[in-house]
Design a protein around this nucleic acid. Structure first.
Lengths: 212, 212
DNA sequence: AACCTGACTGACCAATTGGTCAGCTACCCC
DNA sequence: GGGGTAGCTGACCAATTGGTCAGTCAGGTT
């Protein structure tokens, strides 16, 4: 293996380990040693690749979003499925569903909270939010272009959808008022569908097993 | 001053100081010394009144909710205003508006994040959530009883409202996509009003200055 | 007045933590 | 093949932190 490839591989291993540990333990209580052990390196290696703890964690959050984001974008043949199905699936991806999505959601929440005080976190959070917003707005716009959805302010609708997934997602994680994933899905769709001129029930998004 | 009153006063001072410092600095970075200094006592006094750091902070969050919650409940003569106004005002109270509301919102977010891992925080968060839900559901129910709102599932609607305020609130704090308080208010009302059979624009909630 | 108890302090400590540094090893280039 | 360098390690450190403890002091009780 070339030196560059090895470097990149180690960096990725560290970032992945950081994501896992942060999601499990929470930013606050994550220690460099935990990340180092999970990545199979020393803590000094962490400092070799990343200047400080804060910067490592911040890069980890961005890394998490980039990898899962590109997975999402690549996992569906866009020409095939109806746009309502695609939108419903995007909403699913924003909720803490299976283990991986739950992890992403937790990281997203951690970032959000840090963003309140730390300017670096804030710029990353804003960046990721803009990406997410564009992704969803793009799906809506496509659906409108295909005549499947009614016209509306796609940006506002994207904001609404993300607000709903964030809010309901937090509720699901809290386990309060017996809220389940299906409840959240239904509720969100009940709010979103009318704005698109849809009267259909929420499209069964199914599991991601088929998409691999 | 009696001994008991003095104790209670010191406890309250500590809890208030803790709330302030947590909201300013964030749970993670709050040190006992900061709270002690702000409260005008020694760190040993903190440990005298509260067993551990975690328990102190948890009690502080509950304290914050209890005090502001009772303020909210007491600040409006319930017989006077139309129920749509009361509901709009409740929604305002759930958003990070003025300094004080912003503080409460931040504490709420901190608690939410901790609740994911810490069982004690979770039970507090569930408790507070249930209170908030009941408060909002009660307002809706009153409005329905008065014939001002259409019938609907008040619990679900309360969940929806809180999800929206949480989601949009986080967005406002992030400063992403140029979202403002007024935008959030309008968007939330646009979603909520139809479910109550209302076609009115969001009632101008005004400032709380008049209510003292 | 003598005593006691609860509230609180100042000094202190054990443990932890992020970060540093000299040095080791494998690979690359000449 | 040998010098240089990137990647990485193990040992170490300075600083911080939550928590402890003996002791002080005020106020109430007898």
């Amino acid at each position: 293996m070339s030196a560059e490839a090895r470097t990149e591989q180690t960096r990725a291993a560290i970032l992945r380990a950081a994501c896992e540990v942060i999601a499990e333990t929470g930013f606050e209580k994550v220690r460099m040693r935990m990340v180092a052990e999970r990545a199979g390196v020393s803590t000094a290696a962490l400092h070799y690749h990343f200047a400080t703890r804060e910067k490592l964690f911040l890069e980890a959050l961005r890394y998490s979003y980039d990898t899962t984001g590109s997975e999402n974008a690549a996992s569906v043949p866009p020409s095939e499925a109806p746009h309502s199905w695609r939108l419903a699936r995007a909403i699913d991806d924003c909720l803490p569903g299976d283990t991986e999505l739950r992890r992403d959601f937790l990281l997203w929440q951690e970032l959000h909270l840090r963003a309140v005080r730390d300017p670096d976190s804030r710029s990353v959070a804003r960046d990721l939010y803009a990406n997410l917003r564009d992704w969803i707005a793009g799906i809506v716009r496509d659906g409108q272009g295909a005549g499947e959805f009614e016209a509306c302010d796609v940006g506002r609708l994207a904001d609404l959808i993300i607000a709903l997934t964030d809010g309901y997602g937090a509720r699901i994680l809290l386990g309060a008022s017996a809220m389940t994933m299906d409840d959240a899905r239904d509720q969100i769709w009940a709010v979103v569908a009318p704005q698109l001129g849809l009267r259909t029930p929420v499209p069964a998004a199914g599991s991601r097993a088929a998409a691999g």
